[in-house]
Write a protein that binds this DNA or RNA. Sequence first.
RNA 1: CGGGAUGUGGCGCAGCUUGGUAGCGCACCUGCUUUGGGAGCAGGGGGUCGAGUGUUCAAAUCACUCCAUCCCGACCA
Length: 573
Amino acid sequence: MRWSQLFVPTLRDAPNDAVAPSHALLVRGGFIRQLHAGHYSMLPMGWRVHQKVAQIVREEIDAIGGQEFLLPTMHPAEIWKQSGRWDTMGEIMFRLVDRKGGDTALGITHEEIFATVASELSSYKQLPQLWYHIQTKFRDEARPKSGLLRVREFHMKDSYSFDIDQAGLDRQFDAHDAAYRRIFERIGVPAFGVEASSGAMGGNSSVEFMTPSDAGEDDVARCANCGYSANIEKATSALPAVTDDAPPPAPERFATPGVRTIAALEEFEGGAAADRQLKTLVMMLDGEIVLAVVRGDHQLNVQKLIDATGAITVRAAEPEEALAALGARPGSLGAVGVTDLRIIMDEALRGRTNMTTGANTDDWHLRGVDVARDITVSAWADLREVSAGEACVNCGQPIEIVRCIEIGHIFKLGTVYAEKFGVMVSDADGKEAPVVMGSYGIGIGRNMAAAVEANYDDKGIIWPVSIAPFECVITLMRLDEATLAAGEQMYTELKAAGVDVLLDDRDARAGVKFADAELVGIPYRITVGPKGLASGEVEVTERRSGETINVALDAVVATVAERVAGATQTRKS
RNA sequence: CGGGAUGUGGCGCAGCUUGGUAGCGCACCUGCUUUGGGAGCAGGGGGUCGAGUGUUCAAAUCACUCCAUCCCGACCA
């Protein structure tokens, strides 16, 4: 390809609304352009990278036995009603109505659709199966952000495994775990797996793959000592044991005029330390008022509450709703004596006595509360969010909290979809058995952005060779006959040697060409000009290190081809 | 959804307070000179200022409504 003919609209200034480095650089480098919030056009350079990422994903999934499909993007409502997710998915799903009045949805994921296809499986002898496609997903995100990192329309590789038993699922799950690690290594994104909440996908266990980045949206609790790592939505930690004084025979009411917060009650004469208080959160779960109680110095993690209750929509109750339900305003609320509401109690409060909490009368609190004795607990659950510095549950060393981008997520689904969609096969005894499923997702565009987040400097992107839009650029310093001829010969020979090469034949100054090559992140640059040609040499510059070596004209093709091959791990299979 | 901010040629911005029908840098086109790290000079093209309504002799500028985009938050009693 000749740069003079290639549409690469590079920008000297980043759009001022691009905050994440990958967003700013992909726009500046002429890879993407925004159409509207959460929808991006892939320009030629961007699409080249996207396709290379997708191809690596394809190779690795093929290598563990994947069969590539292409399923529809638009789905009838019925299939989503059959799984129950038409209602549970809520506003994330784009919905439309066709000319006949039929409810239709744009696919956010494809468990339902693949399960429908899989209902034609009939014998355990056909298993295992591993099916996948790389296809557009639509998700009406509440807040698209950070360029390609969170969008409403994107390509995802989603695969689905079908096995006769749990052991088979475990094997396919582990195979994906390994394949995903190879993918991230090949595309140059540092990654590690974490325990995760399965959320709306259902199923019994899942692993998320994370890459550390300030541009991310997930917090991960990690232990540097033993390697424990879990999404903050799932993470636990060990707390020091607490011994409470024996409580009085019954809670005591006491006046606390003007005290509205945990901190204020700590200061108040006759109050209590935060870790001796009960924090009562009034939550609205699918329209039902529920009390979630955590220790005064702890914070509720909403996803944990969702996982513990199976709720679909969760929000904090409005102060008026709390007043109506409990008779007091936030700041004076408590669970003691409440019998008409579900009360979910955090595990950290198990066995606690002599606690202080709101009395459900404005400006009054209760002390001497024994959690087990005085509160009608509906369920105990892990609700609290862990904090940096707390002790690791495995080894006791302090944990850290790391901001990450979620770059992949794999789920063990079990038989839930099989049962809903009749994916039944005859087992070895001739009896009908539900197929055990797994699902595995990886966003192509997000990984492209994550690769930028992990590979850039003040000059621009530093693409890993494996996914660079071009592996090498030949920068012509002049467009005189000799330079052009040398460059074109080199271009032809590099192509023949299998190198993905771009010829910068633009009539522009050296500085412009150098700056553009660096901004768009091409790993190797061959600089060809009259100066070098006079002594039969050209320069080869590596983008990442900035190092330049002089190479004899007749050796440059072999030199570059060798380096490119050395930097690209291709699958041997 | 809550809060904040912003919408003026392709990109970055000024003008708005104190209304008088649009300006700068980069980019683009032409010419000359230049040419190994984002050239110089000269000439030129392109916007009616997010949309609508209102006030006014007159609106980018004032008022109201709407739309869009970005950021933060969405338990913190």
